Simulated scan of single mutants.
Amino acid sequence: MSNHKIAAIEVQAIKVKMKAQGLRITPQRFAVYANLLHREDHPTVEAILTDINRELPIASKASVYSALTVLREVGLVREVLLDEGITRYDARVTPHHHFICQCCGTIVDLDWDALGVLQINHLPPGLQVEGYETILKGRCDRC
């Protein structure tokens, strides 16, 4: 993302979106959110930090974590747990599923309606499902 020059109109749109959520726009929050909006790879904190500091060091690991926490709390990004013990982040917050290539690690977003409705018939009493997401694992077309 850092090599991607953001058009002035896009900068303004990102700021409007952040302000609409009541956020104070810091350079770190802006950089983290803009970075995620231009990515489809569901990056880790380390990948975001490396990318936004590539041209001009403006963030620390702590400031990236802080920005992600605030952005998640207001609903602009979400945590995605696709690999055991690895937290990734996604600016696509609408419901969707994921496909992970077991060979190369590519992660692909799948539209919500790409899969049929999950039939939840035999849950233990007292459990109420509030949402779900499916993770499909296999091999991508490049592998």
Rank of each mutant, 00 (worst) to 15 (best):
H98T: 10
E84A: 04
R29W: 00
R39E: 13
H97D: 07
V117K: 15
D90F: 00
D113T: 09
L115N: 06
G131M: 06
N121H: 07
C140A: 08
C104G: 03
L36S: 02
P125W: 02
L115K: 08
A47Y: 01
C103K: 15
L118K: 13
L123R: 04
F99K: 11
T134W: 03
E79F: 00
R78Y: 04
L123M: 08
V129F: 03
H122M: 04
H38F: 12
L56N: 14
L110S: 05
A67Y: 06
G131F: 08
D141Y: 11
D51Q: 13
T26C: 08
P57Y: 02
Q128I: 15
A8F: 06
I14H: 07
I135S: 07
D113Q: 12
W112R: 15
P95E: 09
K137R: 15
I86E: 08
E55H: 06
L136P: 03
E79P: 01
A20P: 00
L123H: 03
C101Y: 02
K137S: 03
Q128S: 10
D111W: 05
N121P: 00
Q21E: 13
C140S: 08
R54Q: 15
Y65D: 06
K61G: 05
R88M: 11
F99E: 02
P125F: 07
A59G: 08
L81T: 12
I25C: 04
V129N: 03
M1E: 06
A31K: 09
C103T: 09
I107F: 02
V70L: 14
K5R: 09
I6P: 00
R139W: 07
R54K: 14
K15V: 14
W112A: 07
V117M: 10
K61V: 10
M1D: 04
I107P: 03
L81F: 10
V77K: 01
L136R: 10
N53G: 09
D41R: 00
H38M: 10
V16Q: 11
G75A: 04
L36Q: 01
P95M: 10
L136F: 11
T26W: 09
G105E: 09
P57L: 08
Y89D: 01
H122S: 12
Y33K: 01
S2T: 10
L23N: 01
G22K: 15
R139T: 05
K17L: 14
Q28N: 14
G22S: 13
H96D: 00
V45S: 00
I135T: 15
T44S: 11
R24P: 00
L23C: 12
N35G: 05
Q119C: 01
R54A: 15
L81A: 12
T106L: 12
T106S: 11
V108L: 11
L76H: 03
T44R: 13
W112L: 14
I120F: 04
H97G: 06
D109H: 15
K15A: 11
H122G: 06
H96E: 00
I25F: 11
E55C: 01
R142M: 09
V77N: 01
Q12L: 11
H38Y: 10
K19Y: 05
A67R: 01
K5Q: 11
T50M: 09
E133A: 11
D41M: 02
I52A: 01
T106Q: 14
H122V: 04
P57I: 09
E130P: 00
L123I: 06
C103S: 12
L56V: 04
R72E: 08
